[in-house]
Design a protein around this nucleic acid. Structure first.
Length: 268
DNA sequence: TCGCTTGTTGATGG
DNA sequence: GCCATCAACAAGCG
């Protein structure tokens, strides 16, 4: 599930349930704790109070009045609040137990992603590494400058977290479909109008996906609504969607709206 | 059993 | 140095 809009939901959820609460204990699956061990994590966070969390791309940063807890959700991560779901689940890999008896749980079936401990802002930056600007807030000029320096497939760039942080496979397909760009178009072949459209669409898709909970499947005018369904057709023109590989990932696109060569007709 | 999956990283090759 | 591809990680599903 988690791409930028989902992690933004997690941030809101984390803020609603963890911020202002004091940690009584931390239990963790040792295989999900990436840069320390469960005992050290418990020692570091016990007695600490969570402050306002941040999000950058697909990362959630849980600041406390001491160290920070960093969460990455991989493909199957989720947050669960004991008040809504009192029973622990076998895939709950991290349990934050608070002094008031409540629990916030990090659930992750497949163990891609994980949790990190950072003692200060520098360590947070080390863990998050060379992430590009957040896709929700990147400005037009910075996007244009980065695009100008980049070559190769446009889909690969959108999904490259060091290029822009937060876009995954599903949203990359959605953005390219809305921008009417073939997923294997090379960036160096994009004209000024296409570059401008790409930025506008990145912004529009992310803002709308953040605003509209459960955007996958709920937005009927979007590609995500039909993406992956056998016999799925383009919501815009009705053409059968094509499946291909781009940037190493399964890709759906409309062969009519998203023509490979800009010189070839892309429809009315 | 195999193929596939909304993510990331490191090795390899052009 | 840049970019593309692939395997690995891991667990569940059809």
């Amino acid at each position: 599930m988690p791409e930028l809009p989902d992690v933004e939901q997690f941030r809101t959820f984390f803020h609603a349930h963890a911020t202002g609460r004091t940690v009584r204990s931390v239990e963790a699956d040792p295989t999900i704790v990436r840069n320390t061990d469960p005992a050290a994590l418990d020692r570091a966070l016990r007695g600490r109070r969570f402050e306002d969390p941040d999000r950058h791309g697909k990362w959630l940063i849980g600041w406390t009045d001491g160290p920070a807890l960093l969460l990455h959700f991989g493909m199957t991560g989720d947050l669960v609040w004991s008040g809504e779901d009192p029973h622990r689940h076998r895939h709950d890999r991290l349990i934050l137990a608070f002094e008031d008896g409540n629990e916030l749980r990090y659930r992750n079936m497949r163990k891609l992603g994980g949790v990190w401990l950072a003692h200060d802002r520098e360590e947070v930056a080390q863990v998050i590494g060379a992430l590009g600007p957040d896709a929700l807030s990147i400005g037009r000029s910075e996007f244009g400058e980065r695009l100008a320096r980049r070559r190769g497939g446009v889909k690969a760039a959108l999904m490259d977290q060091t290029f822009v942080a937060g876009v995954g496979n599903i949203l990359a397909d959605e953005i390219l479909w809305q921008a009417r760009l073939h997923p294997r178009r090379r960036i160096e072949t994009l004209d000024e109008a296409e570059r401008a459209t790409l930025y506008t669409v990145v912004r529009r898709v992310l803002r709308e996906a953040v605003r509209s909970y459960d955007y996958v499947g709920r937005k009927r005018s979007w590609l995500t609504h039909v993406r992956g369904i056998p016999g799925g057709t383009c919501p815009r023109c009705g053409t059968s969607l094509q499946r291909a590989t781009a940037a190493g990932r399964t890709t759906y696109f409309c062969p009519r709206c998203q023509a490979a060569d800009p010189a070839v007709g892309s429809g009315p």
